[in-house]
């Protein structure tokens, strides 16, 4: 889609970025906690919260990605070496891909394991595939691999932001944290 790149992220893009960041972190924390818990009502609750968090991320992904296609995002610093620019663009594309595929594979896995996702305990989502234990276990492994890939990229993404702020002392981080500009 052709559009001239905007100078800054607008408030909607910034809000979506941070809201999704919080939800993704919450999703990780819930998964780590319930993974080692013995079966209990609390574990069931946390598994369900984890699913609702993921489905929310999936929904917000479409809003965010659709809006990005419509409005565009600020261009990567053209002064960066070509290699580094490619890396940055690649990481961002991969982040989008994983933010979409992680909850989607989670949903598929839920369906395959025979546990329909009931969003917020109220809205029954369709089962994407039929119950199948083998496929369910395979999807569970895929969900984990995607999760740790996403986590690695998030760490890289945060490291990049800190490098810009602390070492380069430029306005990259301030694009997502506008209050840094007002100092």
């Amino acid at each position: 889609m052709k559009h001239s790149a905007p100078k800054n992220y607008d408030p909607l893009q910034i809000s979506l970025h941070w809201l999704m960041a919080l939800l993704i972190i919450a999703g990780f924390i819930l998964a780590w906690v319930f993974a080692d818990m013995p079966l209990s009502p609390d574990k069931f609750k946390m598994i369900n919260w984890h699913k609702w968090t993921g489905i929310t991320v999936l929904g917000l992904f479409f809003v965010r990605f659709g809006y990005k296609l419509l409005k565009g995002t600020p261009a990567v610093d053209p002064q960066l070496p070509a290699m580094q620019r490619k890396l940055v663009i690649g990481v961002h594309h991969l982040l989008y891909l994983l933010m979409f595929s992680l909850p989607l594979v989670g949903w598929l896995m839920s369906s395959a394991k025979g546990f329909t996702v009931v969003y917020l305990g109220k809205f029954e989502l369709p089962n994407l595939i039929q119950k199948n234990e083998v496929i369910g276990n395979w999807l569970a492994s895929a969900h984990e691999v995607i999760a740790y890939t996403l986590l690695t990229l998030i760490v890289l993404h945060i490291a990049g932001a800190i490098k810009h702020q602390v070492i380069d002392k430029d306005a990259t981080l301030a694009r997502m944290l506008p209050f840094l500009n007002k100092k």
Binding site: F44, K45, N48, G114, F115, T116, V117, V118, G121, K122, E124
Partner: peptide, 8 residues
């Protein structure tokens, strides 16, 4: 139903 999720 487990948290409103039907389980068979």
């Amino acid at each position: 139903k487990q948290m409103n999720t039907p389980v068979d």
